[in-house]
Simulated assay, not measured.
Amino acid sequence: MDLDAYVLAHAHEWERLEKLTRKRRLTGAESDELVERYQQVATHLSVVRTSAPDASLIAHLSSLLARARNRAAGTRVSTWHGLAGFFVHRFPAALYRLRWWWLGTLAANVAVTAVMMLWLLDHPNVEQSMLSPAEIDQLVNHDFEGYYSEYAAGHFAAQVWINNAWVSALCLAMGVLGFPVVIALFRNIANLAVIGSIMTRHHQGGHFWGLILPHGLLELTAVFVAGGVGLRLFWSWVEPGELTRGQSLAREGRTAGTVALGLVAVLFVSGLIEAFVTPSPLPTWARIGIGVLAESCFLAYVFVVGRSAYNRGHTGDLDAALLEDRVATQS
């Protein structure tokens, strides 16, 4: 390839991209042009690297692309449009694409919880080995219900939100190792099974579920989503498919980041329900109904909005314009 001729043919496109990166404010049309020019110049850089590697030209184009990428990212992230795009396209598409992982995690945990509760109900000696009669009486008659009204609702909502966001973040962060996610999920459901069996044995099962279900449906679903996505992250390097292990892990890692950010909002909603609805004087059927409604809205969000976004080509990964400058070479 004649490098001088190639530079002459495309110099005006590089100059135009540089002008766009230097403008203080971009119109909507200019923002779209910035992304289009970015993709063109990324292709030019790929051609130069492959056919006529020139160190100074490669450095110039790489620097230009870095500025354009930062400007495109800054333009998008700073707008409400970018935030809306995250919750309309990227986050629901990630949930839908990975649905079998977190639905499987949810089903497995529900089944294990049910088995544990039934087993504990058939083995009262286990309960007696963990707590004294006085401690059981305190839990059944005071502590369990008091937990939801001990603090002011606003403070409690913040506390619950931070705690659950932290648990979900741990599942995602430890996902690359696989087994720690299983341990974290088991500890979570074991605590639920033990308390549930104690409350049921002492004829407080209806009260237990009346306090757990309003917020627990959405809250535990969010935790199981984090666990399932974490396990998918582990599997991405065990079985990378057509990608290299590094590429597969990077893609699922970026998607896990998308899910982590989105779950902050989901857990915020469940925290509000736990703080304001669960301890409220509303009848049990109304409180559970609110929990069922919140869970139904989440599932509709995944299987309606998420499926639509996924069918339009969204996967939950970052936009191509925000990734590395790896563009297929065009002749």
Rank of each mutant, 00 (worst) to 15 (best):
T21N: 07
Q159C: 00
T284R: 12
S56W: 00
T329D: 14
M199L: 15
N70C: 05
Y310Q: 12
R25P: 02
V225W: 05
R287Q: 12
S62C: 00
W285P: 03
H123E: 12
P214Y: 01
F303E: 02
A265R: 05
L213M: 12
F179S: 00
Q247E: 15
A165R: 03
P92C: 06
L318H: 05
L121G: 10
A153D: 06
A193C: 04
G85W: 01
L185S: 13
P283S: 03
W235T: 04
V110D: 10
S248D: 13
V194D: 14
Y148G: 04
K19Y: 03
F268D: 02
R251C: 03
R254W: 01
R287M: 06
Y6I: 05
W161E: 04
I212Y: 05
G306Q: 02
A286E: 12
T79V: 08
G246E: 15
G228R: 00
A222P: 03
E18F: 07
A190W: 04
Q128R: 14
A169I: 08
R307G: 07
R16N: 11
R99W: 07
A256E: 05
R187W: 10
W119E: 07
M116K: 08
Y38A: 07
S197L: 10
G175A: 00
R201G: 15
K23Q: 14
D317N: 03
S248W: 05
G85D: 14
A55L: 06
R254P: 06
